[in-house]
Amino acid sequence: MSERLDVKKTYKLIINGAFPRSESGRSYPVATAGGDFLANVAQGSRKDVRDAVVAARAAQAKWWGASAYLRGQVLYRWAEMAESRRSELADHVGLAEGLKKKDAQLSVARAIDRIVWYAGWTDKVTQVLGGANPVAGPFFNFSLPVPSGVIGVVAHQESSLEGFVESVAAPICVGNAVVALASEHRPSPAVILTEMTATSDFPGGVLNVVTGVTAELAGHLVAHEDVDGVDLTGAGESSDDLARRAAGSIKRVYRPRPHDEENPLRRLRTFVETSTVWHTIGQ
């Protein structure tokens, strides 16, 4: 009896809710932590980044236009979807990061719980970060947090799933749309998780993932004028250079600091703007 031949999957880009191969027609192999072939992954190009930014811009208005309650429901749905594909995620996290099965499962569990945590934030950030201001005069004055817009994420290079979730869920939670460059050598967990947005009621384009060579793509993402903020978590040594390029269009920049885990709201605060309204009060 002959053994069954595996059906191999190529990991594609995720742009605007669709799954294109790279516009460049290229792909690259990624390996397990042990050096064995894991999968072929689409190698995104400058134009893929451009397409993803266009998609994110269009999606952001729709996403922010939805009620905070609905955004919470969608994020929670994403967690439900991830829960049902936990073992697949754990396999890939384990292979990509070289973790034992149990540790990989724990990592996936933490990532899912983190999505749930952010699901609960969508309708609370306004209350926690916003408020009424007692100005001296006959005015009703209040400040509301609003999203920055389109956020470019250079995801964590080592923490293939947890790091990715942390970087993308926070800006999405507060109403931004995201273009994320997945970990260059460990992209598959991020791609698998993002595939599930297609079945979680996300409007297409809220989370776009481009896989490929970070050094080649990050510069294009950071220089793109229609990107409002960038998270340089996974940019490594090029972070300083990228941060300087972000200044060209006055982007908001997130770079990890020591003890960030003690300040869980920092990521939520980084990509929101404060919008203040004055209204007269009078008979």
Partner: peptide, 15 residues
């Protein structure tokens, strides 16, 4: 239930 579910692990941020 959905709204307060979200608060359960965020009480230290509730002011």
């Amino acid at each position: 239930f959905f709204y307060y579910a979200g608060w359960a692990d965020k009480l230290e941020h509730s002011g």
